[in-house]
Amino acid sequence: MDFLRPADWREALAAKAAHPDAVPLAGGTDLMVELNFDLRRPARLLDLSRVGELADVDTAGEGDTVVLGARVPYRDIVERLRSPLPALALAAHTVGSPQIRARGSVGGNLGTASPAGDAHPALLAAGARVEAASVRGSRLIPIDDFFTGPKRNVLADDELIRAVHVDAARGPQQFAKVGTRNAMVIAVCAFSLALHPHTRTVRTGIGSAAPTPVRARAAEEFLDGVLDEGGHWDHGRPVPPSAAARFAQLAASACAPIDDVRGSADYRRHAVAVLARRTLHWTWSAYPAPQGAASCA
């Protein structure tokens, strides 16, 4: 196995162009497990630990967008980006153990593209863009277009993820996950909801309940209509319970889950509905002015 260690981003892109089969290695929280258990034997590893800019967080750039370097560890997101990226920070806090959160990163989560990746629902809800680059140039991929199948994404063989662009939250966001253990657990399912008051829309993200992370588009459209017609964006009053229930039901029907060792398909649908209803309540309670919003440890 060849171990490529580019010193900077330019070298990294050149190496990936020369060796499209090289597997990028950042925190190693997915890849090293696969190597240790002999589940995967790539011919080459591309170690990105010397590429300093991948660990940068740029909050001063274009407008209110946070440019999150691909290997910024979850720990830093939890500690430093709670305010601009609330859903992602909540999701980051549910990842593994403190040791894993100190190494794992959103870039790695996207690279693996597991339907159970904790960051994905939050990125979907926030409407993130993935900055992919190659020697040919770079592009911003809307998160909605990023996932193409179980553990598959839209990246070309010569591309690497440089950063994720996420607009700083302008409204409340939430992320909730179900696992059978109270910490250090892979999601049985997850749900994220973001309110976008400036466009008077909501966005959602569902994890572990379909072949890829997905949005619950019908649920979003339904809720957009309810909020608009009821004047909720203006008066801020709660959504009627019947509408919340319908939103939850539509979120569940966006799922295409399977039965596996972590849970049954029926349970996943049920739990996504519960999480959708709860996150709607939590986010809307925090709108327009945060008034003792339920905080999370």
């Binding site: 909730a176 179900v178 696992g179 109270n182 440890a297």
Partner: peptide, 14 residues
């Protein structure tokens, strides 16, 4: 305020 660590679901914020 709630401390999710003491709730069912724990850190998952369920």
């Amino acid at each position: 305020t709630v401390d999710v660590r003491a709730l069912p679901g724990g850190l998952s914020n369920a």
